[in-house]
Design a protein around this nucleic acid. Sequence first.
DNA 1: CTAGGGTTAG
Length: 664
Amino acid sequence: MLLRPRRARGLLDGIPRRGPAAVPGLPAACDRAPADGDALAAYAGMLARGVRPDAYTFPPLLKAVARRGGPAAASSSAPAAVHAHVVKFGLGRGAHAASALVAAYAAGGDGAAARAALLDGRGTPAAWNALISGHCRGKRFGDSRRAFVDMVRAGAAPTPVTYVSVLSACGKGRDLLLGVQVHKRVVESGVLPDLKVESALVGMYAECADMDSAWRLFEDMEVKNVVSWTSLVSGLARLGLVDRARELFDGMPERDAVSWTAMIDGYVQAARFREALGMFREMQYSNVRADEFTMVSVITACAQLGALEIGEWARVYMSRQGIRMDVFVGNALIDMYSKCGSVERALDVFNGMHSRDKFTWTAIILGLAVNGYGEEAIDMFHRMIRVSEAPDEVTFIGVLTACTHAGLVDKGQEFFHSMTESYKIAPNVVHYGCIVDLLGRAGKITESLETIDQMPMTPNSTILGTLLAACRVHGNSEIGELVAERILALDPENSTAYILLSNIYAKANRWEDVRQLRQAIMEKGIKKEPGCSLIEMNGMIHEFVAGDRYHPMSNEIYSKLENIIADLKNIGYFPDVTEVFVEVTEEEKQKVIYWHSEKLAIAFALLSSEPNTVIRIVKNLRMCLDCHNAIKLISRLYGREVIVRDRTRFHHFRDGLCSCKDYW
DNA sequence: CTAGGGTTAG
């Protein structure tokens, strides 16, 4: 029985008929990177010239539309539209077209149509392979594995291609049990030695975190290639063993873009962002061309470091090198610009994107929200719903954060309830954390505490910390004490709890309590995480730790800082030492706050950057009251916009004011 | 129909 395509017309809807690019038989005949519609445009050109498609026409065309639809566009009718043409030209029973159709339907998420096309292609091993690999491409690894089981049951003989595809699905779906069974079949089947199958086995074990088996197989391979090496490298990196991955990487006989990217991303996953960028630099020296995968990891590293200049450079590099800006890259760029405090550029990327997915919308909503554009973020959410992109749990983190920033308490609670009622998304502890933050910011400390006590999961130290921070801002020491106790019961080493509680006592002038806290922390040997600020200058990342003298310009920086403080005092600055946590004399306390890492970074920026440029700092901890006050004044006095990315939020200082409205 | 690398929160 022939499958009846759901939509017979419209394959060429909206595809411009190009001139030279649409040469029959030369669908790839364009000198730039292929845009999504090029294969279709070439096909259009072919038809326009009256060239009849044959068995070789549709597989590449189907590959292109499957890529265009992708896993996100499960309802995409593009494969069906191509299917109509296949039938129209009488190629419906050809093995090539049938397999390509199976793969395209499966990749697009239409399992039923894929199975029907499989029968159409008479269930040949190639068609089964297409089903297995198509599901795998569409990231439905369970369907892929089931297809393999069904293939065996149907009596079709697995080929090396089958093993390669199903092993990939076992690895990505972390199904070691089936993986081992397939391994046995592979051994019994006599297809070994086979480089691709063996590599797939190594990859499967590596992805399932069974490095011993992966390693044994790898060592037994008579012929290895860059793929088998890379599987091991990324397997180690995934387990957090970046240094071991690096050793292996350094010993590789050859490296391609995939192996470099695996290594770069390994550093990113290990939060070693500067080493990630260092690797990217080495990659360029080694003359291996980066691609869009590489750039996503590089841009992600820039995002985490707040390295806007390098990020911008990466974007220029891409256009110079002709690296396609796909959705992944676009999404990573939106996130990078947002995390660098540049909402304008994030919006530029967003507006320029040809296709957007759930991640795109979530990234821009979060970007607007954390940068203080709450209302705009909520507008974006409504736009997202209007274009029928389904939000997920992370999207709602963005939406709730937006409400917190805009002070929209009722609206935030409405969104929170809509999660379960309208979107069938169960709130997790992070969502409850947003509500705690929302209520806390509004000063509703009691309700905030009630939220924690009534939520269906056990409160962790993070959510209690959010409440404790609210207690600090609103000077609520009664609830603050209780909350701090609860945090320390869960996590006795939590220095943040001690510090926030100490800040609460200090604000209430309870100096004896502050002293006792300090003593307690000393006796228990709890270390406060040192404050650290990053700032990018001329493509270099400079790091400052409170009071450090490691920077080559240290002397200049400290004397600049003295001048700045003198200038500030002239316009009414008075150092606020209430939040100093170390037990020293009053005079030394002033030094301690003057030498906070963000102040050092600002002094360095005022020495080294062009006048009127924005100063961007990334800080690992929460800012103290004194730094917040001082930077407000600095922004006014020197006419500089200062953006500090805190552990929890952004502070855009401008003209003596901060976007956080003094709540953080 | 074919093995390895990519994006959002905490």
